[in-house]
Simulated assay, not measured.
Amino acid sequence: MKYSGIGGQAVMEGVMMKNQEKYAVAVRKPDHEIEVKVSEYTGIIRNKKIRNMPILRGVFSFIESLVLGMQTLTYSASFFEDEEVDEKKKEPMTEEERRRQEQKEKKQENAMMGGTVVLSIVLAVAVFMMLPYYLSTLFQKVITSQWVIALLEGVIRLVIFIGYVALISLMKDIRRVYMYHGAEHKCINCIEHGMDLTVDNVRKSSRFHKRCGTSFLLIVMLVSILFFMFIRVDSPILRVVLRLLLIPVIAGVSYEFIRLAGRSDNAVVNLLSKPGLWLQGLTTKEPDDEMIEVGIASVEAVFDWKPYVEEIRREMK
C-alpha cells in the first residue's frame, strides 16, 4: 500500500485532514450544509532538522496533534452552541471595538486551549501512567518478583485504557465521533488502494488503518511495559521520576513504529499492528453516506488525490 502522507482525526460532526502543514476541517452543520475551513499549522518547532530527528519527531507530533486536535474540536463545536444572546439587547459596536473584542476573545481562546492541553496531558499521565504503578505496588506484599510486578503494572494500564475507550463508546455523541473516525480511515484507505474518492468506493473501504492514533496509544502502553520491565531502580521515588522522564522516549519510540507500519507491508510489522487494529473496532464505527461526504470534502481540501491514484494504478499494472 502506497503511503499518501495525509492523516486526520474526527471532530464533532466532522473530519479534520492534514497534509504536511496544511489542514482542513469539514463539518456537517445543523442545516446539513458542509462547511470547510482550510488553514496552516507549522507546529511547535520550525527547524526541519530538529523536527525530523528520530524519537524527537514523535514527541513533537504527539504534542502538536493534541494542540491541533483541541483547536479543530473547538471549531467544530462552535457550530452547535446554543444562541442565547438576545440580538435586541446587544449594544452596537464600532469597527474598532469589534476588532478589539475579537482580539480579546482570541487571546482568551488561546489561553483556554493551552490550559486544556496541559490539563489533558497531566490527567493522562496521572490516570494511565501513575495510577497503574501505585495499584501494582499493592501486590508487592504477596509478589516478590519485580518482573512480575512490572508486568502486572502494564496489564493494569491496559485494562484501564481499554476500559476507558469502551466506556466512552457507549455515549451517543462519542459514538458519532467514532463514526466520523471511521469515515476518516475509509477515505484514506480508499485512495491509498488506488480507488477514486467517491462515496461508493469509500463505503466499501476498510475503517481500520495502521497509522491511527488509537494504535499509537496502544503501542505506547505496550512499549511502556517493556521499558519498565527492563529499566528498574530500587527507590520508589526514583521509579516515579523515571516513569515521568521516560514518557517522551516511550512516545517517540511508539511513533517510530507507527510511522514504519504506515509505510510497510512487512509480515512481522503487520502482525505487530494487529492489536491496534483490533482496538480500532471500538474507536471506529461504520459511517453513513453523509459522514463519508464530509470526509471526502476534508481530503479534497488539502490533497490532490487524482494524480496520486493514477500513479498507484500505473504501479499496479
Rank of each mutant, 00 (worst) to 15 (best):
G154D: 07
R99D: 15
A150H: 10
M112G: 03
E192M: 00
D200E: 02
V155K: 07
A124K: 08
V118H: 03
C212Y: 07
K141T: 13
I188D: 06
L158W: 09
H185A: 02
F216A: 12
V165P: 03
N110I: 15
V220P: 02
V165L: 13
A126Y: 09
D173I: 06
I149Y: 03
Q101V: 07
E109C: 09
R207G: 04
M113R: 02
V177I: 12
H185K: 02
H181M: 10
M179V: 01
I219K: 10
I149E: 09
Y134R: 10
A166L: 14
E184I: 04
A150E: 09
C190D: 05
I143D: 06
E109D: 14
K186E: 03
M130G: 06
K106C: 00
V159S: 14
I160Y: 01
K172A: 00
G194P: 03
T144D: 12
Q103M: 15
S206T: 13
G114K: 11
R175N: 13
V122E: 08
S215R: 10
E153V: 09
C190P: 10
M179R: 02
V165W: 00
K172R: 00
L151W: 03
I143C: 04
L135M: 10
C212F: 07
L123P: 07
R99Q: 15
L151K: 00
M113W: 02
D173P: 01
M113Y: 01
R203E: 00
L151D: 02
S206Y: 12
A150V: 12
I162M: 06
H185Q: 04
H185W: 11
I162Q: 01
G163L: 04
V127G: 01
N201V: 12
V148W: 02
E109I: 10
S215D: 13
F216R: 11
A126K: 11
D200Q: 00
S145F: 10
S145T: 10
D196N: 09
M221F: 11
D200F: 02
E153Q: 15
M112P: 04
Y134H: 14
M195C: 04
V118K: 03
L170S: 07
K106D: 05
E102Y: 00
H185Y: 04
S136N: 13
S206H: 11
F128C: 04
L135Q: 02
G163P: 10
F161V: 14
A166Q: 06
S215P: 11
I219F: 07
M221N: 11
Q146C: 09
E184P: 03
N201E: 08
E192T: 08
I188Y: 05
Y164N: 05
R157F: 10
